[in-house]
Design a protein around this nucleic acid. Sequence first.
DNA 1: CTGAAAGCGCTAACAC
DNA 2: GTGTTAGCGCTTTCAG
Lengths: 372, 372
Amino acid sequence: MEKWPYRSLTEGKRLHILQYKKRECPLKYKMAKEVTIKSIAKELDITPSTVSRALSNHRYISEETKRLVNEVATKLNYRANKVASSLRSGKTHTIGVLIPTAKINFFGNVMHGIESLANIHGYNVLIYHTNETHAQEVKGIEAFLAARVDGILVSVAKGTMDFSHFKEVQKSGVPIVFFDRANYDLGISSVVTDDCLGAFLATEHLIKQGYKNIAHAAGPMHIKLFSDRLVGYKDALRAYNMKVRKDLIYSGDASIEAGREAIRHFLSGKVPPDAVFADDFTALGAIKEIKEQKLKIPEDIGIIGFGNELFGEHITPTLSTIDQQTILMGKEAFRVLFQSIEQKNKFTSIASAKKTILKPIMIYRESSLKNK
Amino acid sequence: MEKWPYRSLTEGKRLHILQYKKRECPLKYKMAKEVTIKSIAKELDITPSTVSRALSNHRYISEETKRLVNEVATKLNYRANKVASSLRSGKTHTIGVLIPTAKINFFGNVMHGIESLANIHGYNVLIYHTNETHAQEVKGIEAFLAARVDGILVSVAKGTMDFSHFKEVQKSGVPIVFFDRANYDLGISSVVTDDCLGAFLATEHLIKQGYKNIAHAAGPMHIKLFSDRLVGYKDALRAYNMKVRKDLIYSGDASIEAGREAIRHFLSGKVPPDAVFADDFTALGAIKEIKEQKLKIPEDIGIIGFGNELFGEHITPTLSTIDQQTILMGKEAFRVLFQSIEQKNKFTSIASAKKTILKPIMIYRESSLKNK
DNA sequence: CTGAAAGCGCTAACAC
DNA sequence: GTGTTAGCGCTTTCAG
């Protein structure tokens, strides 16, 4: 052994380095020294509990202590760790929002409404786009539950026919509320436009403008909102003693292309329509097709949409439509969800599903104003 | 004592109830019995550590154990608690995205790009709208830092002139990346369109269409992207030996109204322009104003926008514009941020700011195609 | 390959 | 009013 002093020295060094690494490195290194309530406590020579209470403005803490704590907190540039607080309190103050698509302006606006209220109440908002598919909707829900969100807001994807993932959410006790695209068989609260009334008013408007053969280019019938609109459309016709003609009802997928198809379908009929009611995108497609067929809007064919998408105001002719109060819808959706969250926190028995129905607002523009 | 056997029994019961409450209630009551790695461990008579490792597919765990753990996990309907894991690991697998406004389609699409990649990498996305104000931008940043996001993506608000909140983020060590609206004085990476080149190409296109007096309705000059576009516009004119005329440059706030104002301003000049380059919204306003002034597009005045907003394809005339590859921008933004996050995790010294520049793509439509 | 043990930063029941 | 204490559910050394 005496023969290899250098070697043993080296080995000793190596060991030292290893030990050093083991002790100092594992976490503290990359995290630097975060300022915690402990740091503040140490600085003021009080306990972390007091600091915690002072920061959350607890009633049993003296004003003096609160002042001091807040002072030191700002001095040290303290930033509360929400993750830790969430773990302990069981509340994340975060909600998840499931949006079908980013392409429709409507959802962006609702999102904005949700967020504005959420922020006021100190909630963070997680967003997840489903791209109208069931698979991604399920993944979104999973992600939200894993993140332990306090509540979930959903506008159902077109591709969703199986709703078991929502039942899963209910079972886990996380409040959930639908907006715009709802399902009423699950006992889940919802915030929606009065699609039935909106469709009625739109159809009535066309009737009052003197149109006699009013068609409806509808959306996918498995989505309640679209079948509701069909009902409103039929109701209006009946209310004015007009016949509901099956050949004037076409069901597409609520897209520009569907609008073109609808028009081609209608015009190939024996008695073509002189007016069409549809969602905004379908209406847009319809307008394009009608113009290409050299027919005049609103003279030959009147058009009214539904949704008040941004483009409607800028196309030629400008599109009559129905506004869905998007910002309000977002705010209402959050409000309803927020109530359910609060209720749950208070151990109150869960109230039955509420349906909040927003008034559709008519917007008259060129595409349907024959008499002007 | 013997006289009141019932009473003492009752008292005993009461005490029991109190004790029961004290022990069982304070949290467990509302949370029900969550399934944790402990439950799984108990079920299989192994330790939580092993379960944790098995679930995260650790290399030192036998396939057999992994299989069993996963089996029991699904059987018990286990859902990992991300909050707990975040607290311990220091990583939340969440990023925050600061968006100026929900009204512009552009941001919705970028958001979608960000999210699609984020989801693939297992990241959640927090969204915060700043409404173009500095105050809300600061609040958003604060919320993100409190939530301990792993990284932040920002498109700077129009109202932001003071950038100290971003410096704060840098100081705290949270990776941050700008997209679209960047600031290059802070050493922060960014993903942007080549606005200079885009403006050059747009202007060049107008020149090649034979327009002689090309105006530029610019945006707010304190935003780099708009001043870049002005540079590109000027460069193109010079490249083709055309004079840069100050009276043909108008700076507005990139809105429809600004477009109308720009046109009114230009038409009141001595030698009005025969073409205008602007952002999409300004271009839309310009088109409206030009039509009202009974001038023809593209014959009297040619128009080209920038941004490829949805409406451009549907208005009359259809708007020539420049596509900014929104989805790609979102994905790139996430990719750059993700790299920074990974780098940070690996103790690697922070690389200097990278600037990712996306190629603008010309879209020729009616508003600028004189010769056709 | 698995177990034991020590927290991450914060909150809240209980004690004084 | 404030301190004490005990975790929330998970990860991660370190020790076999």
